[in-house]
Structures are given as C-alpha cells and as structure tokens.
Amino acid sequence: MIEISHVSKSFRRKSALNNVSLNIPKGKITGLLGPNGAGKTTLIRLMNLMYFPDDGYLKFNGQLLKKEHLKNIGYLPEERGLYPDLSVQEQLTFFARLRGLSNAEATSSANYWIEKLEMKAWRNKEIESLSKGMAQKVQFAVAIVHDPEFLILDEPLTGFDPMNIDLIKRLLFEFKDAGKTILLSTHNMQRVQDMCSHVVLLNKGEVVSASSIGDLFKDYVSNHFVVRYKGTGIAFANALWTDFELVNQLELSDGITEARLLKRGEKSVDDLIKNLQGNVAIEAVHMEQPNLEDIFIGLIEKLENE
C-alpha cells in the first residue's frame, strides 16, 4: 500500500529521519511506535505530503506519492484541530468537499457518519459548544468522511470514554475487514498488541523493527516462567537450586502460591518440573509471554547499549 524507500529528512541540519525504508501492508492495521522524538510525526507528515523528503521516495499503491493520492488518505493528527465556529454538519461537509467529494456526496457522507457516530443531536451545534469527547468524534469523522483507502491515525482513542473507545475500535476493525489500510500511531502498547497485525518501531529517526506482531514475538522469547504450586516457600526455593532465580511470588489462597522465575542458562520447562517434583505439588506451570512494552523497552535499551 505505502512503500517508503530510503527516506531521509532533516530540519536545520538536525536529522529527523535517516534512511527509513518500510512497507505498510494493504488491508492491515499497522502500529507505529517509538519514543518521543523518534520521527513518527515527521514520517506521518511525509505520508501526507506536508513535508517532502530530502532523500528517498514514498509510493502509494505502486505510484510515487502525489497530491492526487491525498484524496484517498484520511488523517487524524495527534493535536486535534477543527474550525470552532462551524457546525458539525458544516465541518464534515467542508472537509469532504476539500477531499474531492461533490456537494451531494459530501452531504450524504456527512449525514451517514453523524448517524453512525451517534451525533445526530449535535448536527447543527458549533464545535466550540461541544464536549471534548464529542469534538474528538467529529475529528475522527473528518478523517474518514471521504471514505479513504488509507487511514493515518495518531493517538485515535485518546480523550474517549470506554464506550466510545469500543465504538471506534469496532469501526477500525470494520475498515480493516473492508480492505482499508490503517496506520495507528500510539504510545499505548497494549492497544497496538490488541489491534495491530503489524508493527513499526522507530527510534532516533531510524527503523528499529518492522514486522508482523507474530514475527516480533517469535523473535523475543521470554526467559520467565510462572509456576503455581502447593507447599512451603522454603521447600520451593530450595528446589530451584541454581538453575532458576525467584523473581517474586504471591500467595493466591490458602497454601497456593504463584511464583515468577527467571531461568539461568539453557534450562527448559522440563528441567523446572524435574527440580520441583517431590518438593512441592505443581498446580500449573507456563512460560511467560513477553508483552510489547517489554520488547519495545528491550529493543531501545539494546540499541542504546550498542
């Protein structure tokens, strides 16, 4: 869908992006992650032709990204901005028309999204008179009112209550199912893990990782085990020997404890079970799955140590 090839961008000799290459796959939700100042906003602005690369190029559906393609892109910036003295209806119609829809199409699409996003009662209200959450909904509608193929959403769920978060998430999955491509920039790792099939990690203007979530997790196997046992803590600790390190443990109910262990060397679950058998009664044991946050922090730390 979007191909970014060897793109570099600097501002007054300060590099914002350095030789960035990646692909945003069609029909998927891709998470864009990175610490502050990593170059996410610059990358997003390049995709919207708000900036032009110093080097490299961007392609949209195999063609060099041009102004005409902007009609097929929807953008929700992190810093929300609407015309405060236009009504919800006027706002949506105006932006739809700017994106190339005819007056009739724009009005019809605006009406559709006003109903879909449950904003009928606010149709003729000016933006400045709306609550923050309602204005967020209008902002979201502005990004999708022209039915774009590619959606760039920067922190799209910030400022919504749980009900509306659910509504927007459902909509995003509907878009994905309809074959639309979504780039989701956020600091909320759990949300990326829940919603995205692909992830791009940027740091200091460079791509640290760009892969599917599955591949990312496959590459980062955890060294932690979780054991639920019945018995004394002393017997459990003695059974670990030097093969495993007890990180922490928590008594769940009378006599049942859950412990988190860090393996040392090339020890396996079988080794752990062998060590524990005869000392405590094992209720459950599993390898702890790493979360995206751990991977993110691990990757950044690794880079900084190099």
Binding site: R45, N48, L49, M50, K67, L70, I73, Y75, P77, E79, R80, G81, L82, Y83, P84, F95, L98, R99, V142
Partner: peptide, 16 residues
Amino acid sequence: REKANRVVEVMVSIVS
C-alpha cells in the same frame, strides 16, 4: 487562530 487550534495541520494534509 488556525495555527493555535491546530486545524491548520488537518488543512495542509489536504491542500497545499
């Protein structure tokens, strides 16, 4: 005012 309320970012993502 449009710069201050950031609507300009949405605008320049559509028009030059």
